[in-house]
Amino acid sequence: SKADYAYVLRGLQHLSEDGTMAVMLPTGALFRSATEGEIRKYLLEKKNIHAVISLPQGARNYMAIYTVLLIFKQKKSDKILFIDASRDGVKNATRLKQNFLTEEGFAKMLHTYRN
């Protein structure tokens, strides 16, 4: 009933051999069972997932939900980097359910990913 992984698989299908794809999904996409669980298992076995980055609550669509940024590459990787940036957000003064990733938080997340 969810199309999160249909979007991911379609993107991977068009990703160049040396390309990188970042997809923002609700955190729930990491834990749903049934077909989505099988797709996650497939992606783990193919070793396409390079990083999982948790973002501050409300960082997407003005909704108070947690989201993750998944980094995919065609190049295989035996390791997955997990980054918790969920505490690096600040509240939006006009939209209380929305948080923004601070510049320092973004820089820290980028530095961690690159190094």
Rank of each mutant, 00 (worst) to 15 (best):
M21A: 04
E17R: 14
Q57D: 06
Q74N: 09
I71E: 02
S16W: 09
S77F: 00
L43S: 02
E36I: 08
P56M: 03
L43T: 03
Y113H: 09
L55V: 01
N115L: 08
V8T: 00
I39H: 04
L30P: 01
E36A: 08
Y62W: 07
E103F: 04
S86E: 06
K76Y: 03
K47V: 05
A22D: 10
T112N: 07
S16L: 12
N99L: 07
Y113L: 15
A64R: 08
R60K: 08
I65H: 08
F100S: 00
F100W: 01
L55W: 02
V23I: 15
T112A: 10
T27A: 04
R60H: 09
Y66E: 12
R87Y: 04
L43H: 01
L30H: 00
L70F: 06
L110K: 15
R60C: 09
I39W: 07
Y5S: 02
M21D: 01
A3K: 13
R87E: 07
R87F: 04
E45H: 10
A59N: 02
M24D: 04
I83M: 08
L9V: 14
A22C: 13
L15S: 14
R40S: 08
R114W: 05
A29E: 02
F72R: 00
P26K: 05
M24R: 08
K75Y: 03
F82S: 08
S33L: 14
L96R: 11
L30A: 03
E36F: 04
G58F: 12
K73F: 05
F31N: 12
K46L: 11
T27R: 02
H50D: 03
N92Y: 06
R114E: 07
E38N: 10
L96C: 07
L9S: 11
P26H: 05
E45F: 06
H14A: 12
G105R: 01
L55E: 01
Y5I: 03
T35V: 14
G11M: 01
K41Q: 05
I39K: 04
F72S: 00
L96M: 09
F106E: 13
L9R: 14
A34Y: 12
V68E: 00
G89H: 07
L81C: 10
I49D: 01
Q13M: 13
R60I: 13
M63T: 15
F82P: 03
R32V: 15
I80G: 04
Q57L: 07
E103A: 03
T94S: 13
N92S: 11
E104D: 14
V52F: 04
P56K: 01
G105Y: 00
I49F: 01
L55S: 01
M63F: 06
T102D: 09
H14I: 07
D18L: 12
E103I: 02
L30W: 00
P56G: 03
A51H: 02
F82L: 10
L69D: 06
I83G: 04
A34S: 12
